[in-house]
Computed example of a mutant assay.
Amino acid sequence: MIDRRLRVLRAIERHGTVTAAAEVCRLTPSAVSHQIQALSRELGVTLLEPVGRGVRLTAAARTLLAHGETLAAQWEQARADLAAHRTGGVGGTLRFCGFSTAAAAVVPQAMAQLRRDHPALRLHLRETEPARSFDLLAADDTDIAVVVATPDIPAATDGTFDQHVLYDEPLDMLVGPEHPVVGRADIALSELASDPWIGSNPGRAYHQLVTLACTSAGFVPNIAHYADEWDTGAALVARGFGVALVPRLAELPARHDTRRVPVGAPPVPIRRVIAAIRAGSREQPAIAAGLAVLRQVCADLSTTLDAPK
Rank of each mutant, 00 (worst) to 15 (best):
P253H: 03
D135M: 04
A139G: 02
A139T: 10
I277R: 12
G52L: 12
R295E: 11
N222M: 11
P151L: 03
V45R: 08
L65V: 14
A84H: 13
S190P: 05
T19K: 03
K309T: 13
R260H: 07
A66W: 14
V220N: 01
T304G: 01
L189P: 02
D3C: 04
T258Q: 02
V273A: 01
A227T: 11
A21N: 06
R204Q: 03
S302Q: 14
Q296S: 13
L174E: 00
A238I: 05
L209H: 05
R126A: 14
H179P: 15
H34C: 05
I2V: 13
E178N: 10
Q109R: 09
L65N: 13
E49Y: 00
G98M: 15
A83T: 15
V45N: 06
T17W: 09
S194L: 07
D143G: 07
T19G: 09
L305N: 03
A188S: 03
G280Q: 10
A72F: 10
R79K: 15
R259F: 04
V293G: 05
L27N: 05
A83R: 12
G290Y: 14
Q284H: 12
T157G: 07
A307D: 06
V18W: 03
F219I: 12
A235I: 01
F219C: 01
M173H: 13
D143H: 14
R62M: 05
V297W: 02
A286F: 14
P221T: 02
D186V: 00
R132H: 10
G52M: 07
Q208W: 07
P29N: 11
L125W: 12
A227Q: 08
H164R: 12
A20T: 09
V237Q: 01
S40V: 13
L171H: 00
R271W: 11
A72Y: 09
P119M: 02
A276C: 14
S133I: 01
P247K: 03
